[in-house]
Simulated assay, not measured.
Amino acid sequence: MKAMLQCMSHTPLKGYFDPAPAVVAEVAGLVAQVRDEIERFDPEVIYLFAPDHYNGFFLDLMPQFCLGMMATSVGDYATPRGDLNVPRTLAEQCARAVIGEDIDLAVSYRMQVDHGFAQALVEMTGALDRYPVVPVMINAVAPPLVSFRRARQLGTAIGRFASRSHERVLFVGSGGLSHNPPIPAIATATDPMVIERLIAGRNPTPDARDARQKRTVAAAQAFAAGEGALHALSPDWDRAFMRRLCERDWSAVDAYRNDEVTQAAGASTHEAKTWVAAAAAMEAACAQGWEGRERYYRPIPHWVAGFGAITGTARPGAQ
């Protein structure tokens, strides 16, 4: 089989509160390059690992991992609404194989996904439904959270399945890196309306979604101005993490502890587990090994994100 890995940060703030035009153009150039590589690779299927931000999954029932048999984008921020092109039979087979490896995976036949999935698909492929995609949600915002080690094990199980099932497969990790957007937590929320939204906030009205998005933009504006209480971006943590993935240093990845990551880089840095799962899937799919490279990194306060990207390709002879 042939395999490719693409991991990239996402941000809902693109177009809402942008950094200098040169930085916007720099990131746009990166995205164009990645899209061109994917188009030339022409994947048979994409396994997309991404988080949710209380747009599709809520505390009435929060899985740590969920694989969608069918999936629809909610259309938050600037992403389109609509169905993803999920090959149901393949997704069902994948779920059975992963659960058969003792990974406690939830499944959904009515999965709602937000910008974490939709932005990756639109920017990397041009549309929500251009390629068949198996969407896998990793909980990154609602404690208690799984470990980095467990995210790796999930990716390994999916990579093993993919290696037996495809000729050309693309693994995508969408999330991170260091950031701490203003996502409320059930442990500290006091407003009954906020608590209810965290527990069962599906399908908000357009006005309610717009108000939430405006609060996020306002928080980003304050953060970029050096105000507010959001956790600072952590370039040192980000670069070390990217290097460890590219070097396939799984012992170092497994050693990350959730509380230490939150303290060092921010509460939503746990989205980086999507990169771990995607890279571990690449590892399992490439029997003769693969090589990763860091292709972009910049801390971007306007987008409240350490924004990075890595790419992985199979070693010669591994395909």
Rank of each mutant, 00 (worst) to 15 (best):
P19D: 09
P21E: 05
V23P: 02
V24W: 02
A25Q: 13
A25C: 02
E26W: 01
A28W: 01
G29D: 07
A32E: 11
V34H: 06
E37C: 00
R40C: 01
E44I: 03
V45F: 01
V45Q: 02
I46G: 01
L48M: 04
F49G: 07
H53F: 07
H53G: 06
Y54W: 09
D60C: 00
L61H: 12
M62S: 11
P63C: 11
G68C: 13
M69W: 14
M70Q: 15
A71H: 10
V74K: 08
G75T: 10
D76P: 11
A78H: 15
P80F: 12
G82V: 10
D83W: 08
D83K: 14
V86T: 13
E92K: 14
E92N: 08
E92H: 07
Q93G: 07
C94K: 00
V98H: 05
I99A: 08
G100N: 05
E101T: 08
D102K: 15
A106D: 13
V107R: 06
S108Y: 11
Y109I: 05
M111E: 07
Q112M: 15
G116H: 12
F117P: 01
Q119D: 11
Q119F: 04
A120W: 05
A120P: 04
V122L: 03
T125H: 01
T125K: 02
L128F: 07
L128W: 07
P132S: 10
P132D: 10
I138S: 12
I138F: 09
I138K: 09
A142E: 05
A142W: 03
A142P: 04
A142V: 08
S147I: 12
R149N: 15
A151F: 09
Q153I: 04
G155S: 13
